[in-house]
Each structure stands twice: as C-alpha cells, then as structure tokens.
Design a protein around this nucleic acid. Sequence first.
DNA 1: TGCCTGATGTTCT
DNA 2: GAACATCAGGCAC
Length: 188
Amino acid sequence: MNLRTALSGDAALLAPRLLGCRLERQLEGQLLVGRIVETEAYDQSDPASHSYRGPTSRTEVMFGPPGRLYVYLSYGLHYCANIVVGPAGHGAAVLIRAIEPLQGAATMASRRGRQGPAVSNGPAKTSVALAIGPELNGHDLQFPPLRLVLQPPLPPEHIVTTRRIGISRAVDRPWRFYLKDSPYISRP
DNA sequence: TGCCTGATGTTCT
DNA sequence: GAACATCAGGCAC
C-alpha cells in the first residue's frame, strides 16, 4: 500500500497509527532518522484546527492530497510540522509533537544546542532537530529530502490517549497520542 | 522546581 | 487589536 492510500483516512485514527513510524531527513549528505512518539489529530470539523474555517493561503496544503507536509509558523517564531491526511479537498493533518532520534542523534543535538529529550520533545523542537522549515511546506513525503516510512501498527497497550495540549478550543477531544515509556514525550 | 515573560508573523474579529 | 497547535531564560521560592 502506498503512502497516499495509507493516509487517506481519518486524522483521529491515523494519528495513533503514525506512532512508531519513521521520518528520514536527508541533510547535507547525512541521514537523520527519527521515530514518531507523539502526535495530535486536527480536522476541519475541529474548531482548534487551522483548517476549520476553510482553505486560506496558509492552510491550503491541509486541503491537498494526503502524504504531504504542512509547515506553519507558531507564535511568530517556531515552525511546526504536520502530516496531511484525508482525501484531497478535506482539511486534516496530524501534528508531529515529538520524535526519538534513531540515527544522526549527534547532529540533531548539535542543531538544537541541547542534549537528551530536550532535543525533540516538542513540535517546534522536532522541526529544528530535523531541519524542517517553510521551504518544506507542501513537500511530498514519499520523496527525499524528507520521507515518511510507515512501520507496522503498534499494539494499543503501548499507546496513551489524552486531550490535546496548548489549545483553547475543543480541548475535550481525546486526539493526542503518545508512546508509553518514551522519554521524548513533551508532557506526560 | 515552577511561574512569568519576551519574542514575533499570520489570521481573525 | 488580540489570539495563537511554542520555547527558553530569568527570577522567586
């Protein structure tokens, strides 16, 4: 099954499905690999989502085909990375909140100026560690320099489901998912 | 350890 | 004009 087909479903179902999958970033001849350990789902039916009010020049990528990268600027300074999901025309995405470095960990730590979990235990930190910026907005994740590599789904008992973090609308939706026992979670 | 604040672009009211 | 899917540094305890 190709990436686009795999990601054409519902954001709230795909967000936990993406846990354990890998992001491979080609950067200056080096390969940085991270395992996704924390995600949040956002959908156009959801007042907390950028896509709630329909497509704009910023959010049009969310309404495009699945398997693309949606990068937005948060609070005027931080870039955050999302994986677009759902069929074209439907505005939904999964926010990558944290990764666990598997390869190139030293490079990621150096890019962040931090060691340990602080390298990538947050959405903007993850973007810095993997060198994800606005130039990758709309990028197709089937291809370098940034690829999403699916892994077999993890057993449900390894996944914790909670409310989302850092939002003020639709706070009750249990659309945040993280890997139990990962030290790279942004907030337990 | 934990609260408070500054930085700062895009979007919406 | 205000809110916002954030982070890091400073200061009080």
